[in-house]
Amino acid sequence: MFIAAMVGVLVTMLLALVAAVRGPTVYDRILAVNMFGTKTVLLIAVAGFLAGRPEFLDLALVYALVNFIGTIAVLKFARFGSLGRDDHRGLL
């Protein structure tokens, strides 16, 4: 049954990839990329169980973390065109 979960996750990744390529606005792309990231987290978790060595879940945690940071960076860039500033213009 891990296979079924894996197939589901892979299909979702494909759909997210299509959405990321197609997305008319920047925010659609960000949304799709973010979703793609969470799906890779699931992919790693399921793949660990599928391969019979589920000890490497630290990896999935790193993916989730990095995905969040990437999304925030992209969003900040999309909104303000800069990464370092916080001149009380509101955050994201």
């Binding site: 990321a20 960000i30 990329v33 793609f36 890779t40 790693i44 793949a47 990896l59 993916y63 990095v66």
Partner: peptide, 18 residues
Amino acid sequence: AAAMLTGMFSLLSAGLFT
């Protein structure tokens, strides 16, 4: 958009490495 996709590319390749 290309930069975002580069991030996605890295995540994918990391999955492949796993």
